[in-house]
Amino acid sequence: MSQSQIYVYCIINSTDEINENVGGQRIYSIPWHQQAAVVTDVEKPAGVNVHIKESAFTHEKVVELLMDRFTVLPMRLLTLVADREHVVTLLQEHYADFRDNFARLVQKAEFGLKVLWPAEQIKERLSGNCNNNAETDISPAKLFMKQKYAAYQAEKAFREEAGKYIAVIDKFFSGIAVEKKLQTLPTEKLLLNAAYLVDKSKHHEVKPAFERLRGALSDLEFQFSGPWPPYNFIIMGNKKTTDVDSGMSNIIDKILKD
């Protein structure tokens, strides 16, 4: 037995009628004042048969399709509401937040940059710089404390080195981006996970900047992507993100450890 629900892809700053077909699904809009939710009807999913890969690609495809025509505020994946009335309630309750985001994000897109660095080599180099005064006659307690302190110093030096690299990397985009989100060392090898918000008039400057960066720091690995809808730059004044963010971070951590 199934029951229909409404999947919300994004909010747009227009009440133009949307009527698209993506992957056999009808995508349409539900307007309220100067904004609209872009949605599709879905059967209520049963059990655990939610296909994340397909859902993610479809979600992104729909948002990118609309991004060419409107300023879009992409919803988090798998945002479902019960019916049309609830969609209108969502638009009403968050109207001011959406309006403020539209004002900030109009004509802007996000570019992503992930930077991998040779963490092991960096650590070796940094440990080589440390001055190890080997003491032959040392108590176990003192040895323990000394090792703890050495580990602390090594971690500090590692993070400081990361900071130096990131400062250099960031300079390549400082004159181009209007906003940025920099995540330092989310994993040991992933030096930087960055998102830059760039005005459309400067989109053409992003790739040359990236090429200059890649040429300047050839010992690092780069993954550049974009333009994306501005996922990283949505600010919701009355949202409660902490639980969601920490929950998702835990999931990703688990997956990365598998």
Binding site: Q5, C10, M75, G112
Partner: peptide, 25 residues
């Protein structure tokens, strides 16, 4: 591409909490 998309769609964008949204994720 999938990794980049997941990095965005899972935790970012408009996150609505409360009674309106049915939590499937």
């Amino acid at each position: 591409t999938l990794l980049e998309i997941l990095d965005r769609v899972l935790t970012k964008g408009v996150v609505i909490s409360g009674d309106i949204v049915i939590s499937v994720a």
